[in-house]
Design a protein around this nucleic acid. Sequence first.
DNA 1: TTGTACGCGTTATCAT
DNA 2: ATGATAACGCGTACAA
Lengths: 349, 349
Amino acid sequence: MSTRRATISDVAREAGVSASTASVVFSGKTPTSEATRARVIAAAASLGYTGPDPRAASLRRGRSGIVGVVFDQHLGTAFLDPVTTHMMDGLADGVSRLGAALLLLRDDGVTVSEPSLHTAPIDAAVLIGCSPRMRDSLEIVRGRGIPVVVVEGDAGEGIPRVLLDNAEAQREAALHVAALGHRDVVIVTLPTDTARRRGWIADDAEVRVDVTADRLAGARAVFPDAPALAAATSSIDEGAIAGRTIFADPDRRPTAVIAQSDLLAAGVIRAAEEAGLRVPHDVSVTGFDGVVVDGLAPHVLTTLVQPATAKGRAAGEAVAAMLEDAEPSGLALSCTFREGTTTAPPPTR
Amino acid sequence: MSTRRATISDVAREAGVSASTASVVFSGKTPTSEATRARVIAAAASLGYTGPDPRAASLRRGRSGIVGVVFDQHLGTAFLDPVTTHMMDGLADGVSRLGAALLLLRDDGVTVSEPSLHTAPIDAAVLIGCSPRMRDSLEIVRGRGIPVVVVEGDAGEGIPRVLLDNAEAQREAALHVAALGHRDVVIVTLPTDTARRRGWIADDAEVRVDVTADRLAGARAVFPDAPALAAATSSIDEGAIAGRTIFADPDRRPTAVIAQSDLLAAGVIRAAEEAGLRVPHDVSVTGFDGVVVDGLAPHVLTTLVQPATAKGRAAGEAVAAMLEDAEPSGLALSCTFREGTTTAPPPTR
DNA sequence: TTGTACGCGTTATCAT
DNA sequence: ATGATAACGCGTACAA
């Protein structure tokens, strides 16, 4: 049939109007008479024209309607964390208000494939995480003059970022535990650095990951001497490994464990039950994130509910604001303490 | 400073060459002398030019380098399933070979936000799942003349789709269970329709979801009379609910449960242990998918390992082929049986 | 190796 | 309400 796809001027010719009129019929930017409108639609249908070519439209408008989301790891890995997936959900929401979709981009530093950060037709970018690599990504994007927002990362000077009140929130949970009467408390932390080493955190060790450091500081504000055990990642199995270490010696068992994520907390609970301890009767456990942990039922975790979806939405809206030359706002978000069934007063000895 | 961004002709003027020469320097399509190359690079640097405008380039080339991934549900929900996230990982891989990135698109039928399937600057599309809605999405994309591949769904006439040997694989697992000596077997299935109703599947009930139907057929090929219990979704908690139903009556307990997903299997195992049964000594359990189930340790599930990442990669490569006017191939994938620690001969009575 | 010329398909502006 | 015109920024034959 046709050797090439119909364009808007083909349609216009067929309908006996000018190209600009046909364009207006599709965009609806200017009122048109019902008659011409119908003629154009009919002409389009007869030619198999399905609407303006997005590439040409975006060149003309100077906007692609696409927001890039930049990860520094495999997508499979990133999406393993429910917090990330919820955040993506919120982000999708936040940018859709702006009429945009999300382009998944991975910055693994060595990739030569296109479109990369250099060449992707994006109107704005959202950077997830805070690895050193991200600094490079940031440079590239800024070099292109593209608005950027950072989530869960320290971007440096003047880059808007979505922040959580990690320290304050964790402190609140710790206060709850203290109020119940606990004194022997152990903290299970998220990874402390990119090496992701497991083990007890020495007093003089520096914690390089912001989230981990902030939550640790919040807990230590209440329990200055509580030992802290780092997990290699945020997962149930890692939590269980930490838990087994903690509950190994029956004589030195804490009465409460403050975990820095719900997944870790779930693992700690599992380890406790393996060790014959009942939660919360024998040991209390708190989490962080407020995600649904599949398989944790019937327990309801005492935790800090992080507004993961809102975090994404905030990033999306910040990006939207920047595209309209407005100052992004609403970037500081708060966690909410939720008391579940995994905390109780310590057992009486 | 500058009221508008520099273009390639600005750079060319600054470097004292023509625009096309400057273009060639950036694209590398034609050899250039080292001298002009250096001049152009320098000029670009001094003007803050960071490369061709992707919008203009894609208009010119007729390609955007973007592949759309269409979901029929919230991203947060879709990404809850590890099979989906792994598939995304593979897909990202598969299309990157082609030099493309992934655009997340959701077709919820009512959305008016742009860019939608109608207006997104995509070179090709991958449809995930098989809900009725997807048919509409398919129409839209085909109408635009865009190559499309369907994953895990029935697309109808002539649409390439990535297929798994669900029935054959499930049959293999069932044979394994039968060979161990089991005769009393119950099947726990994935949802049977979009209503996602829980409960025993009547003999004359029609199963509308391909995956569920195929795996069920595979199991029934070995155990024609095995009762089948449908779960509302693929999760540990749903598996546990099904398990509790199955193990409720001590006198009518099966000696083996064939679950249609690893998450369901994990839940069944949990329910079995709640009921005081040991796995695999008292009851054997098989799964399907071969994903890492967080929190299942120390069990290793006997399951069918689905090549989830390969599935995504296959879809990506199929799309790549179609863009080069080649026939997509390699769309039929096989699962691999993996014997774990959750199956054993039935207890002797 | 470099330059000329043109068109990719659309839409904003302005005049009618 | 409609039309003429002019970019948007680039890539690629083709000629030189």
